[in-house]
Write a protein that binds this DNA or RNA. Structure first.
Lengths: 193, 193
DNA sequence: CAGAGATTGGACCTGCAAGTCCAGAGTCCT
DNA sequence: AGGACTCTGGACTTGCAGGTCCAATCTCTG
């Protein structure tokens, strides 16, 4: 007796997608419930029916949605980083993904808005970071073989930092140059085995 | 006839400082004019007297203020990066500064709020990035001497990306580990001359 | 088909935050 | 001193966004 039909679930999904799109377009402060309502063709009561916690809960659901996209957009490369060519393909996919996303980072925007007040929101990024690092660390370990000079976990964390920073600069400057240069430099030790 | 006295200027400064503190404490959305008023012991009319553009203009002034702090907090190290020891001291200063700042980045928070709508706000980060990169590039060039294998400008951009990303992860995880590991790896080529 | 519960529409309420205004106090200059 | 300004206090207006509510409709189940 979950009390939710397929139709209801579809509506709920539609709201999340629409809210995500609205946020990408207008930013969190301008993404009012009315704006989301207009885009998703829903009524006030629907919004509060599926997200009883109101705007806060909806934004959190969108944050989850966007966090999942971060990793899935890096697939299938992210889960198969065993050769230098694999790493190069992953690098290319990451750069392309963020170049397309352009000067808007829905997740960052959501976190700066929610993260302060809502512990559940902090958990979203924390979890994203951990899953991401696990995948990269596996790839690092595979490359290093037995002669492990660098702790894969820490190296993976540093790689993620570089991606994050590159994206930040993309937001500020509109260019992916720093992201690309940063990644190339950061991955150099891997190339040399 | 600028029409502003020393007293007025002091008030204006007080408002900016107080607004910056309020934002660090509560975040941009919660930093209402009333909250700023309370902290700075000012009246509505003062806020609009010194910032006719209202809240938007005040936030922009705070962004300028915070952007300047980013670089001044790295001094005097930032402007004297000629030896490996200099770079190490700079690295330490950066890590300490952001560890102290903790899980709040007033500038990032301001930019995600203002950057979308206000071109003047984008110019703040753009200018910060350019000044920052110029200083670091000078340091890189000094280290490389005549045998320049890496373009100092691009290398500097990559270093900034790593700092930015490390700070992002600090905000997400509360740890400076990724910032430190990232910087160590990114600066490694400099150590080897 | 009948009823229970899920789903929907949209009017309504409420609080709050930005911004306006004007009168009064302070200050500078000659 | 006196006039012209800057500066300040705080009441007021306004708009709007979040949230509530109830009645109507749909959709499953038996």
């Amino acid at each position: 007796m979950t009390g939710i039909t397929a139709k209801g679930l579809a509506t709920r999904e539609r709201i999340i997608e629409g809210a995500a799109a609205t946020i990408r377009e207008l930013g969190v402060p301008e993404a009012t419930l009315d704006a989301i309502r207009a885009r998703t063709a829903t009524s006030k009561s629907q919004l509060f029916h599926y997200f009883p916690g109101g705007r806060q809960e909806l934004l959190l659901a969108v944050a989850h949605h966007e966090a999942d996209r971060v990793l899935s957009d890096q697939q299938p490369h992210l889960s198969a980083l065993t050769t230098w060519d694999d790493w190069q393909r992953w690098r290319t996919a990451v750069v392309r993904r963020y170049r397309r996303q352009g000067r808007t980072c829905p997740l960052a925007v959501l976190m700066t808005e929610l993260g302060r007040s809502d512990p559940a929101a902090q958990e979203v990024t924390r979890s994203l970071f951990i899953r991401w690092r696990r995948e990269l660390a596996a790839g690092v370990a595979a490359m290093q073989g037995t002669t492990a000079t660098l702790d894969p976990d820490r190296y993976a964390g540093a790689i993620i930092a570089t991606v994050q920073g590159g994206v930040s600069l993309l937001l500020a400057t509109g260019s992916t140059r720093e992201l690309e240069d940063g990644l190339d430099l950061m991955l150099e030790p891997l190339r040399r085995g």
